[in-house]
């Protein structure tokens, strides 16, 4: 059964100018955040290139990107999807269930990490073949040694 328009009450009477301004502002904001994210991405790239990449520094930058992403998500949902204009209870019914993600993410990642530790402990081959080799910066290219002609070859 299609419902007629009489059920619908939610007319946005926002006037054109304020609305367009808001959209414009949000667009610029999203673009700026994205550009900052990309810059951080390049910073991480350069840290990796360096001689001794600091794991903590990289982690800090990655954390920053995550926070910026959540900010971006907030603006898309609140402004573009107009969730910010809805009644608070409706916002809550959507935001509160998403809290489940906290435990969802935490438990999965902790167990993933623990699986790695288990394998490193009990599977020597796994550890040897996959552990990052720390002695050189890990983007440093390799130069093969000049080959010595081996007897019996050619």
């Amino acid at each position: 059964m299609e419902h007629t328009s009489s059920e619908i009450t939610f007319h946005h009477h926002t006037d054109d100018e304020t609305f367009k301004k808001k959209v414009k502002k949000t667009t610029i904001l999203l673009s700026i955040i994205t550009i900052i994210e990309l810059l951080i991405g390049l910073v991480i790239y350069n840290i990796h290139k360096g001689e001794n990449p600091s794991a903590y520094l990289v982690l800090a930058f990655k954390g920053m990107v995550c926070i910026l992403t959540i900010a971006k998500a907030y603006y898309i949902v609140a402004v573009f999807m107009h969730l910010g204009d809805e009644i608070r209870n409706f916002i809550m019914t959507i935001v509160v269930p998403l809290m489940l993600f906290i435990w969802f993410i935490a438990a999965f990642l902790i167990d993933g990490n623990s699986y790695k530790n288990l394998r490193n402990d009990y599977d020597k081959h796994f550890k040897e073949t996959t552990s990052p080799r720390p002695h050189h910066g890990h983007e440093a290219p390799a130069k093969p040694e000049a080959p010595k002609p081996e007897p019996g070859k050619q």
Binding site: M1, H3, S6, E7, T9, H12, H13
Partner: peptide
């Protein structure tokens, strides 16, 4: 923003009426 909330009385009650005619 605030003017987005003009509550119109026919929200759900009209629902019934509509269904009646459908029925």
């Amino acid at each position: 923003m605030s003017d987005a909330l003009h509550i119109q009385p026919e929200v759900g009650t009209s629902h019934g009426a509509h269904h009646d005619e459908h029925h």
